[in-house]
Amino acid sequence: MNCPEAKNKLPDLLQNSLDAAESARLREHLQSCPACWQEWQELHETWSRLGLLPEEQPGPELRRDFYRMLEAERREAAAAGRRPWRERLLAWLPDLRRLQPAMQLAAAVLVVAVGFGAGLFIGRNDRAAAEKIERLSSEVGRLQQQTSLSLLSQPSATARLQGITLAAQNPEPGIELRRKLLMVLDGDPSVNVRLQAVDALYLYAGDPEVRAALSASLARQTAPQVQVALIDLLVAFREKQAASALKKLMADEKILPEVKQRARAGVDLIL
């Protein structure tokens, strides 16, 4: 193993995410290379100190802001059909950082800190450092996405609810997260979790693929609560493609009358 390779793997070693063979090779390299050993020591120390930081809790204003934004987004989606939402989210970014569970935050801070240092050292000019930070900040989003994805795969419904809350706050929700949220909406055994997923999917108003998937998902929903929430979402998006899915719902005898009524009102609003 050479030095750059080893340095790349140090964070994995910290998190214990290497397999036994790789871990052994890395340790072997560390024994033989003073430079890498030094870096490992520093990383390890930073990491342990991070563990001593008090756990960050999201403040109430964050949630308030989120729902304000969600509300505004719903209204706008309803009024204009579609509009870019990304800018809003990005403007919101500084607040979001405080939301990570402690370890996630620690990992993110560590990556940023190490990267920042490395950027200054290697780049020795602002531009290179800025690029580095840019890259690392997207890394934060990616880590946050990883956390959401792993929470969403837990057997516990409350953990999955937590995963969705976190997903809804991701500044840069990636493709994987989008796919997972749609999977959750279609197949999660818990109605509570599916309902929460509908809320999170409001943030994808501008994504035609999501809108198409939502229309298709309507026919697969069995819980009336989720049916209603999904109808409201499609209506808020003014998704014209959804009209046929809504009409199908109205013709289905298994569907509750209240839901049919909602679908009927929805068709009128969409078309």
């Binding site: 109430p60 949630r63 729902y67 609810l161 937590q162 509570n192 309902l195 929460q196 609560q225 209240e258």
Partner: peptide
């Protein structure tokens, strides 16, 4: 839909009913 903080905020609570 009412969003509100209780005692400064904390645990996420969702309550939802149709009828």
């Amino acid at each position: 839909t009412v969003v509100a903080a209780l005692n400064g905020g904390g645990q996420e609570i969702t309550l939802n009913t149709f009828n």
